[in-house]
Simulated scan of single mutants.
Amino acid sequence: MLRSLALLLALSACAAAPGPDRPSGGSAAPRAVTLYRDTVVVQMSDGSLCTGVRAARAGPWETTLNGCPHTWPVAVKRPTTLPRLPLAPTEGDPWVRLSPPGNAPLGFGPRVGS
């Protein structure tokens, strides 16, 4: 019985430890950002998939990422009527702005040629 408990504790410690794709300290960065009509989907560098959903209103909208450990504020400055619009990092005129805690906001706009 004691041996089973020790094995269970060792396995749970391994599952909680950061792996090679999961940086410790919560320092994740957006790897891919996609804007849909009513949703923003962000794939993070730690493997999490985060979503922000529009409230029922027209025009620019704001939300918070959900479904992942990164509950960052999101501002959609330029909504799209396209069913799916992949975005890339941009310095000027972002369509979507992500605000990681303690860091400057990150802007994303349509990829060149989109």
Rank of each mutant, 00 (worst) to 15 (best):
Val76Pro: 00
Pro89Phe: 08
Gly109Met: 01
Ala6Glu: 12
Pro94Gly: 12
Cys50His: 02
Pro86Cys: 02
Pro60Leu: 03
Gly52Asn: 01
Leu7Ser: 14
Ala88Glu: 03
Arg54Cys: 03
Cys14Arg: 13
Pro69Asp: 07
Pro30Leu: 13
Asp93His: 09
Pro105Ser: 09
Ser24Gly: 12
Ala16Ile: 07
Leu8Met: 14
Gly19Trp: 12
Gly47Ile: 10
Asp38Lys: 13
Gly102His: 05
Pro83Met: 00
Leu8Asp: 07
Thr34Gln: 11
Val96His: 03
Ala32Thr: 12
Pro30Glu: 12
Ser99Asn: 02
Leu87Thr: 08
Pro101Trp: 05
Pro83Gly: 03
Pro79Ser: 06
Val74Tyr: 00
Pro18Leu: 12
Gly92Glu: 12
Pro60Val: 00
Ala17Ser: 10
Leu7Gln: 14
Pro89Gly: 11
Val74Ala: 04
Cys50Arg: 02
Arg22His: 09
Ala28Tyr: 01
Arg84Val: 14
Lys77Gly: 01
Phe108Pro: 04
Asp21Thr: 11
Cys68Gly: 08
Ala58Asp: 13
Val53Tyr: 02
Gly19Ala: 11
Glu91Ser: 09
Asp21Glu: 15
Pro20Asp: 14
Ser12Thr: 10
Pro20Val: 13
Asp21Leu: 06
Leu82Glu: 13
Ser99Phe: 01
Ser27Lys: 09
Pro105Lys: 10
Pro110Ile: 04
Pro30Met: 05
Pro30Cys: 08
Gly67Asp: 09
Ser24Cys: 13
Arg78Thr: 09
Val40Gln: 06
Leu82Thr: 13
Pro83Asp: 11
Gly25Glu: 04
Arg22Ala: 15
Trp95Pro: 02
Arg78Trp: 07
Arg37Ser: 06
Gly109Pro: 02
Ala58Phe: 00
Asp93Ala: 15
Ala13Arg: 12
Leu82Lys: 10
Glu62Val: 03
Asp21Val: 15
Asp46Ile: 10
Pro18Arg: 10
Gly52His: 08
Val42Gln: 07
Arg22Thr: 15
Glu91Asn: 01
Ala17Val: 04
Leu106Pro: 03
Thr63Asp: 11
Ser99Glu: 08
Ala55Ile: 01
Leu106Glu: 05
Arg111Met: 08
Pro18Thr: 15
Val42Lys: 01
Ser48Asp: 15
Cys50Asn: 02
Thr80Lys: 01
Asp93Met: 08
Phe108Trp: 03
His70Asp: 02
Thr64Val: 15
Ala75Leu: 04
Arg111Lys: 13
Thr80Ser: 03
Val74Leu: 07
Ala88Cys: 05
Ala6Trp: 08
Thr51Met: 13
Val42Cys: 04
Gly19Arg: 15
Asp21Tyr: 14
Val40Cys: 10
Arg37Asn: 06
Pro23Lys: 06
Asn66Met: 08
Pro60Trp: 00
Ala16Tyr: 12
Ala16Val: 04
Val96Ser: 06
Asp21Cys: 14
Pro110Cys: 03
Ala13Pro: 03
Arg97Asn: 07
Gly25Tyr: 00
Pro83Thr: 09
Val40Glu: 12
Trp72Ala: 04
Ser48Trp: 09
Gly59Met: 09
